[in-house]
Design a protein around this nucleic acid. Structure first.
Lengths: 124, 124
DNA sequence: CCAACCCTGACACAACTGTGTCAAGGTTTC
DNA sequence: GAAACCTTGACACAGTTGTGTCAGGGTTGG
């Protein structure tokens, strides 16, 4: 079979073995294990490791950022809350009284939550 | 007019004035300024400060996480790269040879980029 | 004009992120 | 069975995040 051990995977992807364990720890890439508990990196994992490095380098983001992006797609409630909050960025209506705006905010929040719930796949 | 100074805003929202400056620094809430440079928090900012605190407390996320979520919606390329990478999570096809899978990945990536570009609003 | 505010910049400090290295102990391979 | 791997756990250390506090210097309101 064609699965690599951690040091081999490290060698072909440019990561260190230490970092492969860390990447696994933050939940981004979790390789299969042999019966003895050895990590086994298949072609898919290797490809993902390479593209992951590109992603981080090209956009100056951290592993923790990707971990958060992952949370966003695994926790619909978090996704709804985050999107809802960011939604109100550009400019406030300014002609709507504050009380009405608050109710409008709540309605939007619930709309988002509903959407997220429908789209839910691995909700905890 | 009804805009509060930084300490007043802090008092009514539960943040410290120090943190209000920090929240501004990471780009999440940037209040208007008086001619002398004093920060002026209007009703909209106050509301956003309160909901921001809720969001952080209820989901155990940090300001930096929100800052990243903001980047995701302001940088379509980053959004596409992130979504594309996370998309390949659940399980690999396993019946598709690696080379084909790679091409499929690229096509998907471009699809996402296109989508993001169409949806672009404040692209830098 | 003077107390009471605001501003920026700096020092400080705990907690977390990202990395390396080393120790004690199992597994594989020849 | 011994060399060369693997595992987890720990110590270490620079950099970032999240917060407080204090200094030096403007602004504002009575």
């Amino acid at each position: 079979m064609d699965a690599l051990t951690i040091h081999e995977a490290a060698a072909t992807t440019g990561w260190s073995s230490r970092m492969l364990r860390y990447v696994e720890r933050v939940g981004l890439i979790e390789p299969q294990r042999s019966t003895a508990g050895y990590r086994l990196y298949g072609p898919a994992e290797l490809q993902r490791l390479r593209t992951l490095r590109e992603l981080l380098d090209e956009h100056g983001v951290g592993l923790s950022d990707l971990a958060f992006a992952l949370r966003l797609r695994e926790e619909p409630r978090l996704r709804a809350a985050t999107d809802g909050w960011l939604e109100a960025e550009p400019e406030r209506p300014a002609d709507v009284p504050a009380s009405d705006w608050l109710r409008w905010e709540q309605a939007k929040h619930e709309r988002l939550l509903q959407l997220a719930a429908e789209h839910a796949t691995t909700a905890a």
